[in-house]
Design a protein around this nucleic acid. Sequence first.
DNA 1: TGATAATTTGACCGGTTGGTAAACATTACA
DNA 2: TGTAATGTTTACCAACCGGTCAAATTATCA
Lengths: 216, 216
Amino acid sequence: MALPRAARTQRRTRIQEAKEEQILEAALEVFSLHGFRGATVDQIAEVAGMSKPNLLYYFRTKEAMHRALITRVLDTWLDPLREFDAEGNPVSEIRSYIRRKLEMARDFPRESRLFANEILQGAPNIEDELKGPLKSLVDEKAEVIRTWAKAGKIAKCDPYHLIFSIWSTTQHYADFDVQVRAVLGQNQAGEGRFEDAARFLEQLFLTGLNVSEQPA
Amino acid sequence: MALPRAARTQRRTRIQEAKEEQILEAALEVFSLHGFRGATVDQIAEVAGMSKPNLLYYFRTKEAMHRALITRVLDTWLDPLREFDAEGNPVSEIRSYIRRKLEMARDFPRESRLFANEILQGAPNIEDELKGPLKSLVDEKAEVIRTWAKAGKIAKCDPYHLIFSIWSTTQHYADFDVQVRAVLGQNQAGEGRFEDAARFLEQLFLTGLNVSEQPA
DNA sequence: TGATAATTTGACCGGTTGGTAAACATTACA
DNA sequence: TGTAATGTTTACCAACCGGTCAAATTATCA
């Protein structure tokens, strides 16, 4: 009798680690493209290059795969916000936060879409994580922003909606990629669009918050 | 032999009109909540208050329903942009565009989510509409914005990315509603969040574009 | 090497889903 | 009112899908 994931005590064999990685990679590909309901286990198995029962040997259900994927993505997804530094210079903090979020949209669009899909469907699996860790982190950073505003370092504004607007504008380039490409047309839709977006967003947010390059 | 939609020549009976409306309303509800693949014909039939075969009498396939819905939504969805007036005052034009988009996110979140779902899945059914009518409209309005910028009425900026950022920030409140509520928490997540968002976005965009209230 | 555990697979199952067939009911109208 | 067109429903089907099983194959290691 084989007891794979559930019964593994501590150690994972190298083969387990590799296969699970292989599966999650395939799952990310398929889930991000078709959503949870739209993805089929067969599809994921095919992309992962293994049989369906073999896949289900490592993750007992489709939902287990999805959960594992979501938790991992959510975690790395928030890294840029964690690096937001209360001690830093507001201008460079905000600017580099935008840059980093935009880079993630460019380099990890599947992760962004996976997340977007989940939220769009009402976040059935991760509502707790949103109300818990996510909210806490945002609360903390919102307080930082509010402090900056009170100190007159940036314009007074609602910090929550500021964060929302940075999230939405940057992730837009991953989640709505098809639309962005369609509108920009073939000439302008090359990878240069991320540079253009970065320039625009920097201008919008830094000027919008009255944090034009401060004279030393 | 009954030949319903496909064979109807010109006239639609009152009963057809009513039923199709009823079906599309239900379809909007279900599709926007679960996506195309996640929605089932039975669900839609139940919400519409009729039997599945009856529903399929008016729309021969699930996909036909979805197509009809998407085209209709896409059309009304662009209304605010159409009203964008080249002759108007840049400040009030941009401000009222943001307001209108935000109102739509508040009042028609299902439509927004339906659209988001479609784009997220790679827009399999509407890529032509994006590259055609949508792109044309955006091109036209982008030109207006560019003219304003050249005339010094607003800051120089990439008009396409400006439009993208208005789309994303406003639709965020419909598409990512669950997340927004989770982060804001129960106290702040009342309907007041739309007013707060409006104030914030107005400040962000109008200041960001250097179109602070011009002295007459 | 031999035995035990871990991994892999083909065949299969029950439930769901999109869609059909045909009988039945209702409406429109000559 | 009669009848033909339109609308509605019950019963059903074939394909798909998530998941299981038992047998086969491969790795582990005493």
